[in-house]
């Protein structure tokens, strides 16, 4: 009982500290746990793998710093996959704060594979009005919306951009989503213009994207840090996603243990209350006297028969 009482009154900060310790220790070792590839991530990988060398993949950065921990590793892994296959990349952002995050990842991946800005990749920047933009890029073309890149340079000054007019020249769109932009890409660019889409989404919204995968509206789905780890495994380049998986597993084990302990504590506490002499009447099925709980000498009114409603 003493243990139960201690568990029931456990300071939440001890739990935070436990979670922190369990998260940090595996990150120091940076080990790679065995990762099983799910069909949806494999499908995403295969879809990009089928783009011929020199083809164009467009990335839409639709997240900000709050989701970077999940979507950043995903973006980096997909960019590495594209650059390793000499696929050219066009980047845009539907979230203003996604623009610098996308550019940082582009710079990092491009440096690894010796890719040149304007020749192998371009960042078009951010434009507001996402659904109008998505329809407009298919109908009116890129120049109606992105005459210049994010630095203000005319996009026609980049050789490979001269051949890009609308979605017809884009082989795949990779949407990295922390909000509703993924739905809009599927509903506007995918359904109306036949653009083939791969979605990489934050874990919170992964389940809501599976219907698109089942309906074959998207080629593949990469969900959360786990999806990023799978993609890193597929491109044989373990990084933040894979290294985070050990922490992820251990924290989950800790959470399960804490849930079990919490439920056991609750169960035994309730049982003790039922059995305890001081707790008579609290949850007990025995009939109680009418004046139970009332102060001594108090006048207790008679129970009134309830009127039928």
């Amino acid at each position: 009982m003493r243990l139960l009482r201690w568990l029931a009154s456990l300071d939440r900060r001890i739990i935070y500290a436990l979670v922190l310790i369990v998260t940090i220790i595996p990150l120091i070792w940076k080990s790679s746990p065995p990762i099983e590839i799910s069909p949806e991530v494999q499908a995403a990988y295969n879809s990009i793998d089928k783009v011929p060398g020199g083809g164009i993949v467009m990335f839409s950065i639709d997240y900000d710093g709050a989701s970077e921990a999940e979507l950043g590793p995903m973006l980096l892994a997909m960019l590495r996959h594209c650059f390793s296959r000499n696929i050219r990349v066009i980047m845009t952002a539907q979230w203003p704060l996604g623009l610098p995050l996308g550019q940082l990842a582009l710079d990092s991946a491009a440096a690894e594979y010796h890719k040149v800005y304007g020749q192998d990749y371009v960042n078009l920047g951010y434009r507001p009005g996402q659904n109008a933009l998505m329809v407009g890029l298919g109908k009116s073309g890129f120049r109606e919306y992105f005459l210049r890149d994010y630095r203000g340079v005319m996009i026609d000054s980049f050789p490979f951009m001269r051949t890009v007019h609308n979605y017809g020249q884009i082989d795949r769109l990779v949407g990295l989503e922390a909000g509703s932009s993924g739905d809009l890409w599927v509903q506007y660019a995918g359904a109306q213009f036949g653009l083939r889409i791969i979605l990489g989404v934050a874990g919170v919204m992964a389940t809501s994207m599976y219907p698109y995968l089942d309906a074959k509206q998207i080629d593949g789905l990469v969900g959360g840090l786990r999806g990023a780890a799978e993609y890193e495994t597929l491109i044989k380049h373990p990084h933040r996603g894979v290294w985070g998986m050990n922490s992820q597993s251990y924290v989950h084990v800790l959470i399960v243990i804490l849930v079990i302990l919490g439920n056991l504590t609750f169960y035994f506490e309730r049982r003790a209350k039922k059995r305890g002499p001081g707790a008579r009447g609290q949850g007990s099925r025995e009939p109680q006297p009418r004046n139970a709980g009332a102060p001594e000498g108090a006048v207790v009114p008679k129970a009134q028969p309830q009127k039928p409603s």
Binding site: V19, L20, T23, I24, L27, I28, A66, E68, A69, E70, G72, A202, G203, V204, A206, T207, S208, G223, G224, L225, R226, R240, W243, G244, S247, Q248, V251, H252, I255
Partner: peptide, 23 residues
């Protein structure tokens, strides 16, 4: 299923910050 993914997502955010602090 959504809740499971949400827990994973929140842990991922902590992992991201811890990775930054360590690395």
């Amino acid at each position: 299923a959504s809740f499971g993914y949400t827990v994973m997502a929140r842990v991922s955010l902590l992992i991201g910050r811890c990775y930054f602090l360590i690395n």
